[in-house]
């Protein structure tokens, strides 16, 4: 079974939102800056609640921020 791949557009969206800093995003999402860094690097997959908070911080839908690559699971 292939490894499940989650990707995200957090880094891109930060820059599209007036170059929002990781600190600002962490404050809006209610998590630490280290968690934002880990998410951006794909080292940590956030819980559904945190994923929604991050998406709301960008005023985006969750699927626009976090993507699940279904093909890799076949």
């Amino acid at each position: 079974m292939a490894k499940v791949e989650f990707t995200n557009s957090v880094r891109r969206l930060r820059f599209e939102n007036d170059e929002m800093s990781q600190q600002d995003l962490a404050g809006k999402a209610g998590c630490t800056r280290q968690t934002i860094i880990a998410i951006e690097q794909g080292k940590y997959n956030p819980s559904l609640a945190l994923a929604f908070k991050i998406a709301r911080a960008f005023s985006q839908k969750i699927e626009d921020v976090f993507q699940y690559n279904e093909d890799s699971n076949k």
């Binding site: 600190q23 962490a26 404050g27 998590c31 800056r33 880990a38 956030p46 609640a49 945190l50």
Partner: peptide, 13 residues
């Protein structure tokens, strides 16, 4: 603290 808005610990911690 790193920032006044930032929590001490989150779900990853």
């Amino acid at each position: 603290k790193q920032s006044p808005n930032e929590p001490d610990a989150d779900e990853r911690d």
